[in-house]
């Protein structure tokens, strides 16, 4: 579904990704793990078109994303839950969700998607007119995921969904991701919470200073000696 070939990108003269190769197949859940500053967020931002590609290629279902303007990426079925959730703080939950269905393709399905999301997160339904800035961290994460799902995406990009949340809530968030997977959605998730994320994805890539170091099945990676030593701290 999503393919990255020798992808290089960065901010101005600063290069953050060095020829990254990555593939996400239809129906898979993939994690990109690695330390802070490894370029994980940059990777997602490049896929969403928020950063320009410097060289290499990336494509979604065979369509190259290189020359697609950032606001058209969502039309190709890619939705992005950004780092720190980035809700519109002074708008209600419902208005935030409405923004998720902004594209002309999504608008006719607004009601139906809204029902789907309220089913998934009954909590959001109860608070549909509450201002997003006043929600708890977990609720905000639900709202952010819901907003991304409003456009009926094929591929969901998630940037550190567990960051800044209490441990109990983190568990809930990972359960949510599991639920979304069960809906048949393809997921590309970026996480620092390695142990937990490896339990819910099929495959994972380990990133360090802008390039992929190791990749493999989640079950195998969690056994990998070098990974355990370096990151899990066991």
């Amino acid at each position: 579904m999503l393919e990255l070939n020798n992808l290089t990108a960065g901010y101005g003269s600063f290069q953050a990704l060095f020829s990254v190769n990555l593939e996400v197949k239809d129906g898979e859940a993939i994690a990109v793990i690695g330390p802070n500053g490894a370029g994980k967020t940059t990777l997602l931002r490049t896929i969403s078109g928020m950063l320009p590609v410097q060289s290499g290629n990336l494509s979604m279902e065979g369509t190259s994303l290189k020359d697609v303007p950032p606001y058209r990426i969502i039309d190709l079925g890619i939705a992005h839950v950004p780092e720190n959730r980035r809700l519109f703080p002074s708008m209600s939950i419902e208005d935030n969700l409405r923004m998720g269905a902004f594209t002309p393709n999504a608008r006719p399905h607004y009601e139906e998607r809204l029902d789907f999301i309220f089913n998934l997160f009954p909590r959001l339904k109860e608070r549909r007119s509450q201002i997003a800035g006043t929600l708890s961290g977990g609720e905000q994460q639900m709202c952010a995921i819901g907003r991304a799902l409003m456009s009926s995406p094929k591929l969901l990009l998630m940037d550190e969904p567990s960051a800044g949340l209490a441990p109990v809530i983190v568990n809930q968030v990972f359960q949510l991701v599991q639920q979304i997977r069960d809906q048949g959605l393809t997921v590309l998730i970026v996480e620092q919470n390695i142990e937990q994320v490896l339990q819910i994805v099929d495959r994972a890539y380990l990133m360090e200073v802008g390039s992929i170091k190791i990749s493999g099945k989640a079950g195998e990676l969690i056994q990998s000696e070098s990974l355990r030593k370096a990151y899990v701290g066991l």
Binding site: I73, I74, A101
Partner: peptide, 22 residues
């Protein structure tokens, strides 16, 4: 929708792009 986009963009002009707003 356009009205919502106008309100949204004044709160976060980067993230609205992800929602398909030009």
């Amino acid at each position: 929708y356009l009205g919502a986009a106008i309100r949204a963009i004044s709160q976060d002009r980067e993230v609205v792009v992800l929602m398909g707003v030009n």
